[in-house]
């Protein structure tokens, strides 16, 4: 669907040249929700903007359905952009226009007839749940409602691709969740390919199927969201995932730990085996669970436990080591945090 080939974007500032995007290649499949995550300044916004050429790459090509759009200019470029919707962090609605006129913007920009506009706009306002706000002005709406207008405007002209630039970063948690639900609904009902950037891994986890992790203008890791969460490889990805899954222990627990502290990851069906109770029975060690959670990502379970293993009777390190081996063999991943 979308192929980014060796994209580089340079900015020429006072402090010399900055390479915002450094030789990035990505493939985004049809009807996917594809996430790009990274800290601010990682180049994700610049990369996203190359897809509709709001940002012209200095090097590389953008292919949409096999067609190289990078050389497009003028009217041809505008026609291409009419097939790509965009949703913005700060909504970017016209203050002086009603919800109806804002939602109609893309249709009118594409020179659709007023008849078509009259038919399509109520339809699309219904889809985003704002039928009763057609005559309101943006200043009369809440943040979540403004973003709904933004989404209505972006999908009104039936685009094949929807670019989302931090769509929930200006919203509170609950509103953000409802906007993400709406984006997922748009993706499923209209089969629109969505490319979404965010600095929050939690947003990616909620709706994306694949993700690219960017740092310093480069994609450092790319893959299925579940796999990235289950076994992040790059240190930056690991940091992002750890931050999202948040298995931090209170300080007084970690200060004088007796025994071996493990972080155990369970994946899919394996999460159903009673590995820990089996360990207690076989090796006679005590297992004390200090932290744990199960995440469902794209419908698949990802279990995480932080457990303390101790041989309280004989204080034999050998038994604990055997127990750790046993757990390692029977679960997806074991990381020794302490001991």
């Amino acid at each position: 669907m979308i192929d980014l080939r060796n994209i580089s974007v340079r900015y020429r500032g006072r402090g010399g040249e900055v390479l915002a995007v450094n030789d990035v290649s990505l493939h985004i499949g049809e009807a996917q929700i594809y996430g790009i995550v990274g800290a601010s300044g990682a180049g994700k916004s610049s990369l996203l903007r190359t897809i509709n050429l709001l940002e012209r790459p200095d090097l590389g090509q953008v292919l949409i359905d096999g067609q190289d759009i990078t050389p497009l200019k003028g009217a041809a470029l505008r026609q291409q952009r009419q097939k790509i919707g965009m949703v913005f962090q700060h909504f970017n609605l016209m203050h002086t226009s009603t919800v109806y006129d804002n939602a109609a913007f893309a249709l009118r920009a594409a020179s659709k007839s007023e008849e078509e506009v009259c038919q399509r706009v109520p339809e699309i306002l219904e889809l985003v749940g704002l039928s009763d706000k057609a005559t309101a002005y943006p200043s009369q709406l809440s943040g979540g409602q403004k973003q709904r207008v933004g989404i209505a405007r972006a999908i009104a002209n039936r685009p094949a691709v929807l670019l989302c630039d931090e769509p929930t970063s200006a919203l509170d948690l609950e509103t953000a969740a409802s906007i993400l639900d709406l984006l997922r609904e748009v993706n499923q009902r209209l089969r629109i390919t969505i490319v979404l950037i965010s600095h929050e891994m939690a947003v990616i986890k909620k709706i994306c199927s694949r993700v690219a992790v960017m740092e310093g203008g480069k994609v450092v890791e790319e893959g299925d969201v579940y796999d990235i969460f289950a076994s992040p490889k790059h240190p930056f990805t690991r940091q992002l995932v750890d931050h999202t899954l948040n298995l931090d222990l209170p300080a007084h627990l970690t200060e004088d730990l007796q025994g071996t502290l493990l972080k155990i990851t369970f994946l899919g069906e394996r999460a159903e085996n009673p590995v820990l109770s089996e360990t207690t029975l076989r090796f006679g060690v005590s297992v004390n669970i200090l932290h744990g959670r199960i995440e469902y990502i794209n419908g698949r379970a990802l279990g995480l436990l932080v457990a303390l293993l101790e041989d309280r009777q004989t204080h034999s390190p050998a038994k604990v080591a055997q127990a750790v081996d046993y757990i390692t063999q029977n679960t997806a991943q074991v990381e020794v945090l302490h001991g």
Binding site: L54, M86, F88, N92, A106, A109, R153
Partner: peptide, 14 residues
């Protein structure tokens, strides 16, 4: 707001 102009450009407005 330059964002509004950017949005208009993104939707292919002339």
């Amino acid at each position: 707001d330059p964002g509004i102009i950017e949005a208009a450009q993104a939707f292919g407005a002339s």
